[in-house]
Design a protein around this nucleic acid. Structure first.
Lengths: 333, 333
DNA sequence: CTGAAAGCGCTTACAG
DNA sequence: CTGAAAGCGCTTACAG
């Protein structure tokens, strides 16, 4: 048993291949009677036109790639879901690749998508150097970069305002009465300047109100709850006066919450903790985590919008879309 | 600017298209000097062979589909990640579709994959009727069904032992000293017999030790934490003697935990709660949730294995692979 | 309203 | 070791 092709349908219906093509693509100019005969043949043979052949002639695959660090990381699914929803309602299929934030895997994924080929790629995994991405971005392979500037042709970006987010965290903690601040950040082998903008914003926000953050009140750690736990323990042991902690992300903050609990430190009365990202998990921990929240779904929608524009007119330049973070107050502050 | 094709590479290298083809596919029988000339032309033109053309002749796309209810549901990412990892290390790309457990969306997704086409589909979303799936499963489109029997040709399945899981839950609660049991299940419009097997197993497990579950101690709800909260409130109000609650899944259980806490019911001393699935969230709630855990990653690995077998030899029949649930004891029992 | 011809970018025999 | 021919399953002009 073999998959039926357009020729077999044409033969069975007693028409030419073009006529079948017109029917399946719902093009005008087919007599109703002919249409019926063709439809009957299609149904009888269980014919489904393949995209490969169509893609070959149209040079469009109606498929794009989504490259991200790790779909099983609670940070991504909201974003990914938005991208899938947009794709689905616009007739696109999407090929997903995980990179684990590994440079080699990221390159491999992008290359594998290029050879598929796809019509474009959304990249939310920022290891690759600009030159590589630039060499990939073509009119036939536009790139949308998330949280990374796309300062070359055939690429656009969606970015979230990390510095603003840091400022918001500072403002919130100050409003809640904190006077001694700590920061628990992310150890990061690479020199990604984006990553430090949350801290920069936090410092700026503190300074705007006459406070400051001492270098000794900054702890860096692996970005997970275990790391957050250990970092908070170190931090609070070193400086017992700290009453407001800003964490690089929610998962670190969850570890911080647990460390405080285990040390018998009351939250939010004695210490207030604010995270970053707004992952669902924050609703379930105790106390519920206050956080600088990024609208992940909105981020995904914007990413698709950029891609769509690029697909329509690859030669134009598109300015970045910016996502505005917001404080989501729960019980930890 | 246009994507270079094999003809242009051939011309630039002064060879035929077949020779270029041999080089890119690393086939033997190309003189080293020729090889170098071709490689040089490839590099200069930034040539990347497209899969579409290759797929057309080989009738293989090296792509398969993954259909699931919702990638943003914490239940799926572990499974999905396993599938992606397997795909990646075996040279496959994967197209992901979300169905929201909606029959129409599921059919649409499967059809859209069929027309891509893909080499096969893994389906973890069980709305479609058998006849539809059967009509899709063809030697050219093998199907792997998760948690659903695949009793037709060109299909295989991976299933988890829901009844055993229910029995394990009963056994565990009894061992922990419970004597009065409640069950909080899932409201489900469709008649999916799979869904009730956890309950069947639970009853069986209780009866094996001389206990039983009264109909009035069963509550059904939407499968989320809000629903679990409300159901637990109703259940505990109706029967204050209940000291062991088995929940259809973890997210319901999380709501149950919260309901108990809010009613001042001590856990695990007064009431013990056990969930099902083993999602990560269970580690973060208070008390940490004991659960009947399914190895989601293993499930994904098995799914790919089945697909691979089907791809190699579509005509053979493959028996289902079974996933064994295990009690993961944490603090709620 | 319908069809014959050419072609999308590759690979698969086959010939030399 | 290399290339000419045919073909995978469609669509795109174009002719009638």
């Amino acid at each position: 048993m073999k998959r039926a092709n357009i020729r077999e349908v044409a033969e069975r219906a007693g028409v030419s291949r073009q006529t079948v093509s017109r029917v399946i693509n719902e093009l005008p100019g087919v007599r109703p009677g002919t249409q019926d005969r063709v439809q009957k043949a299609i149904d009888e043979l269980g014919y489904i036109a393949t995209n490969t052949a169509k893609a070959l002639v149209s040079q469009k695959t109606a498929t794009f790639g989504l490259v991200l660090a790790d779909i099983s990381n609670p940070f991504f699914p909201g974003f990914a879901r938005a991208v899938f929803d947009q794709a689905n309602s616009n007739g696109y299929n999407v090929l997903l690749c995980n990179t684990d934030n590994d440079l080699a895997l990221e390159k491999k994924a992008i290359l594998s998508l290029a050879k598929q080929p796809v019509d474009g790629i959304i990249i939310f995994s920022n290891r690759s150097d600009g030159d590589f991405l630039k060499s990939v971005a073509k009119p036939y392979l536009p790139l949308v970069l998330i949280n990374r500037p796309a300062n070359f042709q055939y690429a656009a970006s969606v970015q979230s305002k990390n510095k603003v987010g840091g400022e918001l965290a500072a403002k919130h903690l100050i409003e809640k009465g904190c006077t001694n601040f700590g920061y628990i950040g992310r150890l990061d082998p690479s020199r990604e300047t984006q990553k430090v903008r949350r801290l920069m914003g936090f410092k700026k926000g503190l300074e705007a109100k006459g406070y400051s953050l001492k270098e000794s009140d900054i702890e860096l750690t692996e970005p997970n709850d275990i790391g957050g736990y250990a970092a908070a323990t170190r931090l609070l042991r070193r400086n017992r006066k700290i009453d407001g902690i800003f964490c690089y992300n929610d998962i670190i903050a969850v570890g911080v919450l647990r460390a405080c609990k285990d040390s018998g430190i009351r939250m939010p009365s004695k210490v207030k903790v604010i995270g970053y990202d707004g992952i669902r998990l924050g609703e379930y921990v105790d106390p519920k985590l206050t956080t600088v929240s990024i609208d992940q779904y909105g981020l995904g929608v914007c990413a698709f919008k950029q891609l769509q524009k690029l697909l329509e007119n690859p030669d134009k330049k598109y300015r970045p879309l910016w996502i505005q973070p917001e404080v989501l107050e729960r019980d930890s502050t």
